[in-house]
Amino acid sequence: MEKAILVVEDERKIARLLQIELESEGYRVLLAHDGIEGWAAFQEYQADLILLDVMLPGISGIELLRRIRSVNQDVPVLLVTAKNSVEDKVSGLDLGANDYLTKPFEIEELFARIRTSLRLSARAAQTDHAEEWLIAADLKLNLNTREVERADKPLQLTQREFDLLAYLVRNKKHVLNRDQILSEVWGYDYDGNTNVVDVYIRYVRKKVDEGFPTELIHTVRGIGYVLKDTL
Rank of each mutant, 00 (worst) to 15 (best):
G192I: 01
L139K: 05
K140Y: 14
E9T: 10
R202A: 15
E11T: 11
N177S: 09
P57C: 05
N177I: 12
A122F: 02
K140N: 11
F162G: 03
E149Y: 15
A130W: 13
T214K: 15
L17N: 07
E63F: 01
D198F: 11
G96F: 13
Y225W: 11
Y225T: 11
R160D: 12
N171F: 03
I181H: 05
R170T: 11
L95I: 05
I59S: 10
L56E: 07
S85T: 08
Y188V: 08
R12C: 00
S60F: 02
T230K: 13
K172F: 04
A4H: 05
D189Y: 13
G222N: 09
G58M: 09
V220K: 15
D198V: 10
L143D: 00
R119G: 00
E21I: 03
Q159E: 11
L118W: 04
V175E: 03
H129S: 05
W186C: 00
V80Y: 03
G96D: 14
L18V: 08
D152F: 04
I135L: 03
H218K: 14
V185N: 03
F42M: 07
R170H: 05
G58E: 09
S183H: 10
I62T: 10
D138T: 11
I223Q: 14
K3N: 12
S183P: 03
Y225G: 11
L6C: 01
R113W: 00
G192K: 15
Q156V: 12
D191C: 06
Y100I: 00
V80M: 15
T194S: 11
V185Y: 01
H174S: 07
V90S: 00
R146F: 12
K103I: 14
L168H: 03
V226F: 04
K83Y: 08
G58L: 08
L101Y: 12
F162Q: 02
I36P: 00
A97I: 14
V7H: 09
R123F: 06
V226C: 03
T116F: 10
A40C: 01
L120N: 12
E63H: 04
H33F: 12
T214P: 00
I20L: 06
Y200F: 10
L95T: 02
Q180C: 06
L182Q: 12
